[in-house]
Structures are given as structure tokens and as C-alpha cells.
Design a protein around this nucleic acid. Structure first.
Lengths: 236, 236
DNA sequence: CGCCAATTTGACGAACTTCAAGGGTTGTGG
DNA sequence: CCACAACCCTTGAAGTTCGTCAAATTGGCG
């Protein structure tokens, strides 16, 4: 159940007892269809969710109804653990493709963390990895042009998926539309389309029907000014 | 010492004993000059810092040396509590003007949080407020134009400073240069200058020699599509 | 096949950057 | 007290990037 949680993270070492406690306390495993909304902004949150399979995003809408993704979660991410201390979230949480999730009620989390300060810090740590990724997204949007933003995002997803064993020779599944990438990169879908074409024609990366194929990781990283230390992943 | 910490936050209620423990455990109070760098990216962090007075920012640099601010901290913020679970930070932390800070070593934080799960959650909560602010910055950069970005940032700072009693009738001190605002908004300093002029000439807000005067908060909020729920501040 | 959603392309305009120069303010040393 | 330097702010002109609008094409699925 929690096999992928904190896998290969530098500071994330769960003891066997801690992992067992977490596994045993899990209350529900569910599958949800694509585009299912798990949490709406402002609602009281009573459970937290570990993503087992698939992709989940968090997003906010502007006044014109345009959407900004503020996070993309991959398997092994404890998606809305932020809701545990915060009680409500200020954004929506939704499945991108079909997903499998496990969930814990907040009372259970209180119970299993009482008297387990190290386990508590590990859960805390998991939410701070999200915060570190948020900061990098700020950097991406504030300092990179359109090609750089896309390249940086793809590099990030590649490294995060690699850490949980979901890449193979430069490829990974990414069940998104071009419009989703645009919403993550702060661009229009017309422009992300042009950027995808440009990066494909340069022989760097291809994105087609929900699959990313990286042809030249070195150039992709350079284009996105990507430096993965913020992901706190163990050097192999 | 910790008087401003979590002041007026919806989920942040420190008990008297918890506050006393935190106060007593504080190891150092220091003043630092403007532009002093507290933490450099990649360095091991051994202490965490509560900001008592002044402003502190976190930033990252792109390959061309241009800076992106990823956070601005106001008094009452536990600035680098993220470094406690993470051990290293992936960005620099620096004073904007002269500041006064209090600090706790990580060993001390481990000691006082053992056996105090509620205090631990309150510290955790404080870091998740930062994460919520990060997400709003992603939204700001991804979905707003230049005027909106500036307006949104000023609104945010106003509300955060108001929560700790540092505004008076539409004014607050903000010891920043125009270039700092530009680095926070992902704009050039030439353009932030034009935006400042435009917003000033519309009678909405003035920023001059380190002081913000908001003339028309309603229009400023509208311009920045600002909705303060993400700051988790108690309705007065 | 035919429909609908997603992608692709073109033409044009708006927003922001870049480059360059001028003006104001502050602090410092003669 | 003045002169000067350093830094910051301001403005203009020209160029680039990206958005908008509109239309055509592709691809999946009943």
C-alpha cells in the first residue's frame, strides 16, 4: 500500500513498524474515473489521500474561468496531506486520468502520530517536498519562457516518476491533454501546441496520446534550466 | 518572543504551556543588516528562524543570474522551519531590510516536539501556510498580467501584515526596491516601474521610498483578483 | 461513416522585454 | 557646504514573445 510513499527520498526513511502502522490504519482503497473531483476549494476535509496509481492535479481558477494547475501528483504522493493540519484547502483536487487511491481519516492520523514523533516528521517532510516543488513552479513561471517552462515540467515529472519506477528508457505515461500542459505552464493551448511542435522538431521530446518520449534528456534539461536537487531524491 | 507567531490564524491556537515551552527553548535573538544572507541553497541547516521584525525573502537564480523571489516573510513567520524536516534548502534566504530574528536549533525542536503532538502539528501548520502562499504565487504568475500580479502581491502583504498589526489606515512599511518587486512578480524592473506608475495614476496605490499607501483597496483587490481565504486568517 | 473533442495552423495584435539614455536622491569625502 | 559618485528610478523607441480569433484538420469512438 505505502510501498511507493517516500521511496528513494533522502530524508524519508520509514521504519518497518511505522510503515506497518500506516498500512494497517488505512481505511479505504478506491478507484476513481478520469476528471473525478476529490476535493473542492473551501470544503472541510476529513480524510487524506495517498495516490497509488495514476495522476492527480490541484488547481485554481481565475475570474475568467481559466485554470491554473498548482501541482501535479504522481504515484507515491500523499496528495492532500496538507488538508490534515489546514482543515480546508483553497484549491480543487482532481484526478487527471483514472486513479487508484488509499485514504486515512484525520482522526486516524491523529491517533497514529500521537507518540510517534518520527512518523509525524516523515509525514510533515512529505508535505514539505510538495512545498519545495511549489517553489520551483514559481521559479519556472517567473523566469522561464514558454519552451523552458514545458521542458522544466517534463524534466520534473521524469525524475519524480523515475524515483517510483514508472519510467523506462526515456518514456513515461502522462494522461494529459495539451490544454492541461498549458494550464500547468501558464500558457494558452494554442501556444503550448506550437512549443510542443518546436521541441519535437528539434528532436528533444515528443508528447503524443498521453505518452512522453524524451529523445535528448541533456538538451531538455538545459532548455528548462533543470537541476533536480529540489526533489530530494537519493542519488541512486 | 513568539507573540506574533500564528497570530489570528484560524487553525493556529497555541496553548499557554506550548507557547511557554517554545519561548523558553529559544536560543538566540539577533539583529541582522539589510541584505544579509541567512541560508544558502544546498547548505546543511541546523537552526530555524522566527522573524520578529523586518522582512525576509527566499529566492532562486536562473542561469542568466536573474533572481526569482519565491517567498516574502513578514514578522511572525517561522521563516525556515522548512529546513527542519528537509535538512537542506534549495534556495537562498536573505534579509530585505534590517531584521530581528529568534532562532532554535533543530535538536531543540526535536526535543520540545517529542511528546507534544499538538505543538508539532502547529509547527507543521505554519509551514503549510507557506505552501498555500506558494500555490497562490503560482496562480499569480501563471494567470495574471503585470498589473494584476503587483496588485495581488500588495493585497497579500497588506492582509498578512494586518494580521500581525503592522498596518495603519491603508499604509504599511515595505523596505523593498522596485527591482525586488519585479523579482517577485516575474517582471523586469523597467516594466514594474511602468506598472507602478499606472496604478498610482489610477489612484489605486502608491509605493514610494519603502512605503505602500493603498488609496482604493476595493479596486486593488479587483485588479489582483484577490481573495484572502488562502491565508487562513481569522475573521476579526 | 459521422460526430465530437482535441490538435493544428495562420494572421494579427497586445503585452512585455531589451537597449539606451536621462534624471533624482543619498551618502561621502574633500 | 559643495562636489561627486553610486544607486535607483524614469522614460522612450524598437523588437520579441505570446495571446486572440478564426478556421481547418486529425483522431477516437459509437
Amino acid at each position: 500500500m505505502t510501498r511507493l510513499f517516500l521511496l528513494n527520498r533522502t530524508q524519508g526513511r520509514l521504519g518497518a513498524e511505522e510503515r506497518a502502522v500506516l498500512d494497517d490504519a488505512c481505511e479505504q482503497v478506491r478507484e476513481l474515473p478520469a476528471r473525478h473531483i476529490l476535493v473542492r476549494a473551501g470544503e472541510r476535509v476529513h480524510t487524506s489521500t495517498l495516490l497509488l496509481d495514476g495522476f492527480i492535479c490541484r488547481y485554481m481558477d481565475d475570474n475568467a474561468g481559466a485554470r491554473q494547475l498548482v501541482a501535479i501528483h504522481v504515484p507515491g504522493d500523499f496528495v492532500d496531506l496538507h488538508g490534515f493540519p489546514l482543515q480546508t484547502l483553497e484549491h480543487d483536487v482532481a484526478a487527471m486520468g483514472p486513479v487508484t487511491i488509499a485514504s486515512w481519516s484525520h482522526e486516524t492520523l491523529v491517533r497514529i502520530t500521537e507518540g510517534r514523533p518520527h512518523l509525524t516528521r516523515m509525514l510533515w517532510y512529505a508535505t514539505l517536498l510538495d512545498a519545495a516543488i511549489h517553489r520551483e513552479w514559481i521559479f519556472r513561471l517567473g523566469r522561464l519562457g514558454a519552451e523552458g517552462r514545458l521542458a522544466h515540467l517534463i524534466c520534473e515529472l521524469y525524475v519524480r516518476l523515475e524515483a517510483v519506477g514508472l519510467t523506462r528508457d526515456g518514456r513515461f505515461t502522462l494522461p494529459l491533454k495539451q490544454a492541461d500542459l498549458a494550464e500547468a505552464c501558464g500558457l494558452t493551448n494554442v501556444h503550448i501546441n506550437r512549443v510542443l511542435r518546436s521541441i519535437r522538431e528539434q528532436g528533444i521530446m515528443t508528447f503524443r496520446s498521453g505518452e512522453v518520449v524524451v529523445h535528448d534528456m541533456a538538451r531538455l534539461r538545459k532548455l528548462g534550466e533543470f537541476e533536480p536537487s529540489y526533489l530530494y531524491i537519493d542519488p541512486q
